[in-house]
């Protein structure tokens, strides 16, 4: 039997945070395949190249999205995702350093499933693994 891997697109420009996300997924024991896009344009191009029935086997199960991305920001990207026929129901967790209530409200209004404010301590950051796990279980794959 082949091992089921959760495909995750992570749109994040900072490699330090990519490292932490990877670690949180590993710590939770989530068998995953992580695709990293370092700016919004790269993420959008990747999504456009992986939409439609023909790409079903490479479609992400989950999208992790930083709001503050170069070129195309996270809000624009989220809006595009929710308008897309193929990704409109893909779970999206917004990851951000922003503590602005407006950003939170905007992300949720645009259709984010969850808003995760990047914590300032390691233990809380590792909680992202549990959040990803629960989000994946709440959405049929």
């Amino acid at each position: 039997m082949t091992e089921h891997k959760t495909r995750i697109l992570l749109a994040e420009d900072n490699d330090g945070d990519v490292f932490l996300v990877r670690r949180a997924l590993e710590k939770r024991g989530i068998s995953h395949e992580l695709v990293v896009a370092h700016n919004g344009e790269e993420a959008l191009a990747w999504l456009d190249g992986h939409s439609g029935e023909v790409h079903r086997d490479s479609t992400p199960h989950l999208i992790l999205l930083d709001l503050n991305l170069p070129r195309i920001d996270g809000a624009q990207l989220l809006s595009h995702i929710r308008k897309s026929d193929w990704f409109s129901r893909t779970p999206v967790i917004v990851l951000t350093s922003s503590d602005s209530p407006k950003d939170r409200q905007m992300a949720l209004e645009l259709g984010a499933n969850l808003y995760f404010r990047k914590p300032t301590d390691l233990k809380s950051f590792m909680d992202l693994g549990r959040i990803v796990d629960e989000t994946l279980k709440s959405v049929p794959i």
Partner: peptide, 24 residues
Amino acid sequence: LQSAVHDLRAGLRRTGISAELLLH
């Protein structure tokens, strides 16, 4: 100011977590 605070906070957060990682 909001962007400056955001970027500085993000830097501090990463530095703090890196220090924790270093400890362990």
